[in-house]
Amino acid sequence: MLAQQIFNGLALGMGYALIAVGYSLVFGILRLVNFSHGAIYAFGAEMAMVFIGLNFGIVPGIIASMILTGILGIAIDKIALEPLRKKHSMPIASLITTIGVSNIITNLLIVFLGSEKRNFPQLFNFGSVKIGSVVISSTQIMMCVVSLILMGVLVFIVYKTKIGLAMRASEQNAKAANLMGINVNFVISFTFFLAGMSATIAGALVGGYYQIVYPNMGFMAGLKAFAAAVLGGIGSLPGALLGGLIVGVSESMAASFMGSTYRDSIAFVILIIVLIVRPHGLFGRKGITKV
């Protein structure tokens, strides 16, 4: 029972980790909590379903949705956030803007697709593996595998490529990076693109796991993934992975041992305890206040 719940939680946690990465990447560069990320995740999942419905096939459908969602991310940055950066407005203005954007995306989805829950095709189906009393479905295994591969790709992009170098430079000091010839606005757009793509994959995987998608799916998942990102130390990729796993496992444990009404909030209890003990998350770097 315990081992079974841990495995269920790990698969779920991988999904959260993929969403959390989006929060982390954007926060790293802009110091902004992107509250529209949950809506982006729901958009990705819904679009994947629309494309699959148009007979794109499962994998091309998800890829098409990834590109579209990535473009949506860029559009959010260019239309809503870049003008605020240019005006050097208060951080809270950007925060409220992302809340507004989240409202726009979710409600446009409801207007055009309806608010009801719709079936999402099962992505992987080749039986299940049984180890002792623990049953692991192929969906769970594939969720872990795909998420780990994607995390690997993201780590590769951030730490081994030129654009990743630019991302890390902009994260450390946007002004200095600009002086070194880095187009910071392009880097930020690229970050939003990456965040949108990983959110889509998360949406498709979680949608395939529960076999259900709906426009409001990003609300709670987004908040919990956000908790995961902060838990691990926002701005750090391994932190997002660990945070996602902690949230996923604690959620499935809480659901089975304490009752389903606890599952949505246990992440926040852990989050608060971690933040009080370690104010910058598990892997977060300590910010230095200069006077």
Partner: peptide, 25 residues
């Protein structure tokens, strides 16, 4: 006393969810 800025906002967010959880359970 320990947490400032964005992290404090996040703690308040968690607080809201926990109150909801208490009301639910």
């Amino acid at each position: 006393m320990r947490v400032t800025g964005t992290y404090l906002s996040i703690i308040t967010l968690g607080f809201g969810e926990i109150i909801k959880m208490i009301a639910m359970n």
